[in-house]
Design a protein around this nucleic acid. Sequence first.
DNA 1: CAATTTTTTGGGAATGTTCCCAAAATTTAG
DNA 2: CTAAATTTTGGGAACATTCCCAAAAAATTG
Lengths: 340, 340
Amino acid sequence: MKGHQTTIIDIANALNLSKSTVSRALTGHPNVKTKTREQVLALAAQMDYQRNQLAISLLTSQTKTIGIMVPEFLSFFFPKVIIGAQEVLAKAGYNVVICHSNESYETEMANARGLLASRVDGLLVSHTKETRNFDHFRIFERKGIPVVFFNRICEDMAVSKVTVDDYQGAFRAVEHLIETGKRWIAHLAGPDSLQNSRNRLNGYLDALKKHDLAVDSSLIISYDLTLDKANIYVNHLLNLPQPPDALFAINDPTAIEALKVIKARGLRMPDDIAVVGFSDDPISALVEPGLTTVAQPVTEIGEQAARLLLSQLQNDDDRFEPETVVLPTYLIIRGSSRPS
Amino acid sequence: MKGHQTTIIDIANALNLSKSTVSRALTGHPNVKTKTREQVLALAAQMDYQRNQLAISLLTSQTKTIGIMVPEFLSFFFPKVIIGAQEVLAKAGYNVVICHSNESYETEMANARGLLASRVDGLLVSHTKETRNFDHFRIFERKGIPVVFFNRICEDMAVSKVTVDDYQGAFRAVEHLIETGKRWIAHLAGPDSLQNSRNRLNGYLDALKKHDLAVDSSLIISYDLTLDKANIYVNHLLNLPQPPDALFAINDPTAIEALKVIKARGLRMPDDIAVVGFSDDPISALVEPGLTTVAQPVTEIGEQAARLLLSQLQNDDDRFEPETVVLPTYLIIRGSSRPS
DNA sequence: CAATTTTTTGGGAATGTTCCCAAAATTTAG
DNA sequence: CTAAATTTTGGGAACATTCCCAAAAAATTG
């Protein structure tokens, strides 16, 4: 008994039927005598029969499984995206396999190989900050397995993509700081490898330009998103001969780290220095002062990515045109920048 | 070309070899001429060959995949457990499929069916708060697929389990409140369906008893962990003729909701009312005042659960003895209860 | 150089399922 | 009651792989 799972052949033998008939009864095929179907169903339930998806997938060469690759899932962002995607995919009868690469390029490649071997039907990807070579994703493209990028996207691949308007969000955030009278605005930027880092940086730069403010390169620091580094850089900025009167951070964890440093130094927010983050992490509403931040429709990113993938999965007969969806962001103003 | 993945037969035909030889070359079997192996490997790389795990799993009847079922993964807790488990399992050559049931019993059952159909080799489970019937997990047991419960465990099943010492943690937390002079301590408890809720409640009760404090049932409220309810109940407690001077909450999100209500009412912490949570959510260190909380070794829960599963997976020849691991908790005292 | 040993290769079964086509059983019509 | 039509069932191929056993090729020995 050990290790042996009930198969349709076990049921067929027990009832003196052929596996074909049992298969038909189980899958709800119409051409089965009612009595036969009932017998099969009853025995299947009794024997804990559970269809073997491996065999079916092997035969039909589709697994009805989508791989989702994310760089991490300790912050609220990626789990929430996944939930959005999963809901849409589940409705279409797809399962989901989640891989997190822990921001490691090596792990990401290994995961991609694994998903390829387990024959996922499609892929939703947000790559690591280390990823500069995308060959492990191009294999999917070559094999005709649809790939959709979200949040962190690869510009060079002709596949569907979902992002938020990072440029506009950053622009609006910095303009808000300028409107509240800030003139010497620092930017803790993300790594250059991420397209959304670059877009946010450009939004920052253009907002300064629009308002005829000088861009000072000593106020712009790109870093790798590890929080202990954020701490160092914020301290560095505050130690400058002319410290900034505002800080726009690449994301909320970074901004909150800045809040800690600023509070520890006894500076007042926003009077001495205002802070704005990006992503509206739930924590941001709870810290004191509340963190002004650029919010994005997180669940919708997942939903949209899933929809783009599904549409590609369904219309595979003719040539597919990749699509890019850019979702809007909106500024949430809280105590860290609201003029008193 | 479309939809067709390269197989060993494609390679075999191209090189005028049999599929057996190609298979051997690819799997590193020793009995292959070096030159043949090189040819096969070169062509495989060139043709983007990727072994079909479905076929292998079907043949060997093991998928080298472990299912992890969690009720949610928006809070930091479950992702962190998953990361711990995944690390241990990956080292042993296992992949992981994550299912979240969104606290829905129906979804949990559907997920269990899915994992059964896709033939996972084992299961790590933390069930939903709705789950009272565990038949969908017993099927795995009956089929000889090892199951390990963690965090939220089913007492009635003779399988391995990993928990923290909820009783001791709660006891210590409440004793701490008593030591700081609190005498009228409320408890916002979790649903009765969760074993850890019951254990924490017992720890609370026994701490009161040990210090000869009266247990007042109006100060104990069980609820379903939805935060808007928490808000209502905290307000209710504060409106009592004799409001509590301390609150022990089932978890940190609940405690933080309480903090909000208390601050909105202009009460001082911990003088007017002290608050203690459970689980040491990262947010708890950031709110003001900092939240006193019972911390637990989160990643280790996942690691231990994975190890228990692996040991069961490896020694399947003889009878297996289920094991229960109880990990220690420790109290972190912050501003919400530290006497001024 | 034949005989023996060793290395390398090929053929076929097995895994669990679906689906097509043919065969058998049942129902309907004349 | 037979013939035709319909319903129900069975047999076998196919999916991609591994592994066992036998066959072929190469290497070694006397």
